[in-house]
């Protein structure tokens, strides 16, 4: 039973779980967590291939990508929130249709 639990299996499992998680979870912040799971899987894979320096760099770059994600998500959330505040009385759907009409006019 335990022979299944070696580095290879664990890393593959991590990656697959991460991948499925990223795809299925809808909220961006949940996705970011799953991204880190996925990247942990990649890290393990690199380690199992015994490329220490690559693993070392991956270990540094992964958190960076998470930071980038977080930053961007917070920023976009804020943008969306502020737009909601501006148009708080207007439902979102209505606003987008308005835009589309304007575009189609502009295209002519």
């Amino acid at each position: 039973m335990l022979e299944f639990i070696d580095l290879t299996t664990i890393s593959i499992a991590l990656m697959i779980i991460g991948a499925i998680g990223i795809v299925l979870l809808q909220k961006p912040l949940d996705k970011v967590i799953m991204v880190s799971v996925l990247e942990a899987g990649l890290f393990l894979a690199i380690v199992s291939f015994r490329y220490l320096d690559v693993a070392f760099l991956t270990a540094f770059l992964d958190p960076l990508s998470i930071i980038v994600f977080l930053f961007a998500l917070i920023k976009i959330n804020e943008v969306r929130k502020s737009q909601l505040n501006d148009y708080s009385t207007v439902p979102k759907m209505l606003k987008s249709t308005e835009n589309r009409e304007k575009n189609s006019e502009g295209d002519k």
Binding site: M15, I22, L38, L42, I46, F49, Y51, V54, I76
Partner: peptide
């Protein structure tokens, strides 16, 4: 946003292929 995060999965897949092909520089 969701679409962009999803591309990460594909890029990890490509990374694995590069890793197996021993193209570690490309991987980095």
């Amino acid at each position: 946003v969701i679409r962009t995060i999803n591309t990460e999965v594909a890029s990890v897949g490509v990374s694995l292929i590069l890793l197996t092909y021993n193209s570690t520089l490309a991987l980095l």
